[in-house]
């Protein structure tokens, strides 16, 4: 028993050094050199300054939290797009508050984007994601927001739709994931327009 305990203490020490310190440190060094863009979080620049990560959702709202009409809006977030507090609402399928919140979000979306009553809203626009940091929206969601953004920025709708296509990420090999529009990439492209 005592011999096993001694071996146990030594083994915990040894494997902490090998797998807990050397393994992550060496690989982080390699990753920083081999994949500098990815390992740092795929940051996007605007006018020479990093404004966010193309992987991470952010809020396009004014100081009071109202959505800005000149920007495409990400999905509703349970964590208010707080980068340090990821998570979902965790409301179950039979939760009354989930239903009320979806109804309210649908009404707000319809009036903000002037969507006609007979046009269905894609459900990603009224549901919160698992991470609270979903960077993407569906193509249909982007298309419904396009007229509002185009009108506010005095741009032809076709111009905005071209940018949507340019910011659309297709599934790898055509099957891994869904086609989505990266909202930060799209908004940065809009702000880069002369």
């Amino acid at each position: 028993m005592r011999r096993q305990l001694v071996s146990a203490v030594l083994a915990v020490l040894l494997f902490t050094v090998v797998t807990g310190i050397l393994y992550p440190l060496v690989l982080t060094g390699v990753d920083r050199i081999a994949f500098p863009h990815q390992s740092a979080g795929s940051l996007l620049d605007l006018h020479g300054q990093p404004v966010g990560s193309s992987l991470m959702g952010q809020a396009f709202t004014d100081a009071k939290g109202h959505p800005l009409p000149g920007y495409f809006q990400t999905r509703p977030s349970a964590s208010s797009d707080n980068g340090m507090a990821s998570g979902g609402t965790n409301l179950g399928p039979s939760s009354p508050s989930l239903l009320t919140s979806e109804r309210d979000l649908a009404a707000a979306y319809r009036s903000f984007n002037h969507v006609a009553a007979d046009v269905p809203i894609p459900s990603d626009a009224v549901t919160t994601s698992g991470s609270g940091l979903d960077p993407d929206i569906s193509i249909a969601n982007a298309q419904l927001q396009a007229p509002r953004v185009a009108a506010y920025r005095h741009l032809p709708l076709s111009r905005v739709e071209t940018l949507i296509r340019a910011s659309t990420v297709q599934p790898a090999l055509g099957i891994l994931g869904e086609p989505v529009v990266d909202v930060l990439t799209l908004n940065v492209a809009l702000d880069r327009l002369p």
Binding site: S123, T127, G130, D134
Partner: peptide, 15 residues
């Protein structure tokens, strides 16, 4: 082609 279907509460659209 443009709508991501199913129960999306608590899910990421990219998946």
């Amino acid at each position: 082609a443009t709508v991501i279907g199913g129960n999306l509460t608590g899910k990421e659209v990219r998946f």
